[in-house]
Each structure stands twice: as C-alpha cells, then as structure tokens.
Computed example of a mutant assay.
Amino acid sequence: MELEMYDHSDGKLTDHDRELCEGVLAFAAREINLTPYSSMSVTFVRNPEIKEINRKYRGVDRATDVISFAINDDDDDVFEQLAGEERLDLGDLFVSLDKVDEQALFLNHSKDRELAYLLVHGFLHLNGYDHETKEEEAKMFAIQERILTNYGLPR
C-alpha cells in the first residue's frame, strides 16, 4: 500500500508517530487482505483545523479525533473492479494529534495506542467498514481490536 503523510501539526508530529502510522497501516492492510495496489493519505492536524473540517463537511462545529474521506463511498463493487496494477485510491484521513493526547490521558492508555486506534478506525472506514448498526459495529470493532492486539497495542 502506498501511503502519503502530511504534517499540518505545527511541529507536534514526531518521527515515532510517522513510523507508527506506516507500521500499523501496513499491518492493517495485510490483516484485511487489501490489494498491494492501493493508496491513501493521512494528514496530521491540530484541533482548530479538524474542527473546521468537521464543521464544513459534517456540519458539526467541534473538534473531533479522526475524519475519513473515502474516495469510493458509493461504489460497493470498486474492490472487485481492480485489475492489473491499477492503483486503488482509498481516500484520506485527518487525525488530530491534540485529540490523541487528550483521549490517551482520559482513557489512561498510551499515546501510541490512541494514535494507532484512530488510524485503524479511519482506515477501516476507508475500506467500507462502518458502525451504523449494531451488527456493523460488532464486526468493525472486532476487526479493529484484532489488528491492534496483533500489532502489539492491546486494550
């Protein structure tokens, strides 16, 4: 999987965060058997920027932790249509590093666990998983926890 990362965090993003992002997303891609001919981006932001994105695209005027913009939200057959070496663009994630810090403290776990959780959660959304119903939630969250546990960041 090709991964592009962008830093809009005003120096808050560390090399360790970048390595964790690359590692956990590559691991997650293998866990769900994602085609190697896929790509996505992750942009690391602070609360003011993610608040503006949340307001503009979701109509919610508050900062959130992760927002995913799936390229193929309306095309259920896109994964079957991939042929040869055509690149499958999954979409874009925006992650608030301020929320990573806040939520890690609130949940009493490591920043690594929180960052990986948000990355995997958003990644699964980009791959068609959702939690609108109890059944969808159970499936998505089970996969999410399996990935994080197997990666070495259990709850």
Results as ranks from 00 to 15, higher is better:
residue 107 L to S: 01
residue 64 T to C: 15
residue 13 L to R: 13
residue 28 A to W: 04
residue 4 E to M: 15
residue 37 Y to V: 02
residue 68 S to P: 03
residue 122 G to H: 02
residue 107 L to E: 05
residue 6 Y to E: 15
residue 19 E to I: 05
residue 148 L to M: 13
residue 65 D to W: 05
residue 66 V to D: 01
residue 143 I to V: 07
residue 86 E to C: 06
residue 66 V to S: 06
residue 139 K to A: 03
residue 137 E to L: 13
residue 60 V to W: 05
residue 122 G to F: 05
residue 87 R to S: 06
residue 24 V to M: 11
residue 25 L to R: 07
residue 86 E to A: 08
residue 51 K to D: 02
residue 47 N to V: 03
residue 14 T to D: 03
residue 145 E to P: 00
residue 120 V to G: 10
residue 95 V to S: 01
residue 112 D to E: 09
residue 45 V to G: 10
residue 77 D to P: 00
residue 45 V to N: 12
residue 41 S to Q: 15
residue 36 P to V: 06
residue 139 K to V: 08
residue 119 L to N: 02
residue 17 D to V: 07
residue 46 R to K: 13
residue 138 A to M: 01
residue 57 Y to D: 12
residue 80 E to V: 04
residue 41 S to E: 14
residue 3 L to F: 09
residue 84 G to L: 03
residue 113 R to P: 01
residue 11 G to H: 09
residue 84 G to E: 02
residue 79 F to E: 03
residue 27 F to T: 03
residue 30 R to A: 07
residue 122 G to Q: 04
residue 40 M to Y: 13
residue 117 Y to T: 14
residue 147 I to L: 04
residue 136 E to I: 01
residue 80 E to Y: 14
residue 26 A to Q: 08
residue 91 G to L: 10
residue 38 S to H: 01
residue 108 N to E: 02
residue 25 L to C: 03
residue 24 V to T: 10
residue 54 N to W: 12
residue 119 L to A: 04
